[in-house]
């Protein structure tokens, strides 16, 4: 940003430097779009095909989703590991912790409650059905 304000066109460039901030920015978003599209396409292919080992599909889909979220964070939201991003990364880490606690805790508690439910007659079960229907 600061080098642009000084006018990059009047300065010499080191090898590997971008000619302009615009090109570098467009390239960043394009790389992000290509990676995200690739991961999305892989996810949909994994879900649609039957050639993969069934029990591994949900885990594979979760891994692909987490990878794509990382791509979005890095290339679109520009959350990096650099020293100028420490505050943002710390806030993100705390958010991820809370999200994990809420989701995993809910699933754990509700699965336990389901397992400990008293057996009840079928006509009541249809109203309170928590099992896979």
């Amino acid at each position: 940003m600061s080098s642009h304000d000084q006018g990059v066109y009047e300065e010499d460039l080191a090898p590997g430097d971008e000619h302009s901030q615009v090109l570098a920015g467009v390239r960043g978003y394009a790389v992000g779009l290509i990676l995200a599209t690739g991961l999305t396409a892989t996810s949909f292919w994994v879900a649609a095909t039957h050639s993969l080992w069934g029990p591994g599909v949900p885990i594979g889909l979760c891994v692909l989703a987490i990878a794509q979220m990382g791509i979005h964070l890095a290339f679109f939201l520009h959350i990096t590991t650099g020293p100028d991003n420490t505050n943002n990364v710390l806030a993100l880490a705390f958010g991820v912790l809370i999200v994990f606690l809420v989701v995993a805790g809910s699933l754990w508690i509700m699965a336990n409650m389901n397992a400990n439910m008293m057996p009840m007659p079928m006509n009541q079960m249809t109203n309170l059905q928590m099992q896979h229907g």
Binding site: V102, V103, G105, S106, L107, T126, N127, Q129, H132, G133
Partner: peptide, 13 residues
């Protein structure tokens, strides 16, 4: 999301 995951199987027929 947690609510959805818990209620995913509760289709009530």
């Amino acid at each position: 999301f947690a609510t959805y995951a818990v209620l995913h199987g509760a289709t009530a027929g």
